[in-house]
């Protein structure tokens, strides 16, 4: 038992142990995706690949029980990551989630192709992840409850002190970062953070008191 070819294993294989990978944060992975999107950075993509490819392979092997198909899924998924990184947006979810949804769609299509059916529905029709022209506007009409919710929240939000309301508006309505708000209003970042915290606390009180 003690003659395990240890050196060979460490040299030939990359082992992603959980302790090591926990250091890779969501923000860091997001930055790598942004680098791929903005500058076609091969270095950033290599890092993403080394993080995700072994995970995708393990996932796909569990799903298909077939190594070749699993490798096809890894390659298809990561090819999409390379070419479509600009479609990732951190507001919609983490990089892991985005890449999972690409893999999920590819798996769905692979399983159906195997059945040789004509005129299949593609996963992209059901879960549009990679379509360029995805617009959210058409979906607003149907989320009626959301509109009512927004109206209600609007009332609470008018009850906030001006200083807090302005900060909340810039962050949650205009989508600015706390740093940007700090720069634009020329107030310290700490103040932006505490106003945000107080405002959210106040809103939460108003909403729960209302229920």
């Amino acid at each position: 038992m003690h003659v395990m070819p240890k050196n060979r294993v460490t040299r030939e294989y990359m082992n992603t142990s959980p302790s090591k990978t926990q250091e890779v944060t969501t923000e860091y992975l997001g930055k790598l995706l942004a680098d791929v999107a903005n500058t076609r950075s091969r270095r950033a993509f290599s890092e993403l690949f080394k993080h995700f490819a072994p995970r995708l392979q393990a996932f796909a092997t569990r799903q298909f029980g077939n190594e070749q198909t699993a490798m096809d899924l890894v390659q298809d998924t990561m090819t999409n990551v390379w070419h479509k990184a600009h479609l990732f947006s951190p507001e919609k979810g983490s990089p892991t989630t985005w890449i999972f949804t690409i893999a999920r769609n590819i798996r769905f299509d692979i399983l159906r192709k195997n059945k040789h059916r004509q005129n299949d529905v593609s996963a992209e029709d059901l879960w549009p992840v990679l379509s360029e022209e995805m617009s959210d506007s058409s979906e607003e009409d149907f989320a009626l409850d959301q509109n009512i919710l927004m109206q209600e929240i609007g009332e609470y939000y008018r009850q906030l002190p001006d200083a807090q309301r302005i900060v909340i508006e810039q962050i949650y309505v205009q989508g600015k970062s706390q740093q940007e708000v700090s720069d634009e209003l020329d107030i310290p970042l700490g103040t932006v953070k505490s106003r945000t915290r107080l405002a959210l606390q106040k809103l939460k009180e108003l909403i729960t008191a209302h229920d």
Binding site: N15, F49, Q57, F59, V74, Q75, W82, T97, T101
Partner: peptide, 28 residues
Amino acid sequence: EEQVAKRALNSGSRFANTDIDNMLEQIM
């Protein structure tokens, strides 16, 4: 989605370095 993705992709298999390099080249 967040939870399922985390669970699905939480650990990797051993991946031969030569496979990595080949596939990376092909993709890029």
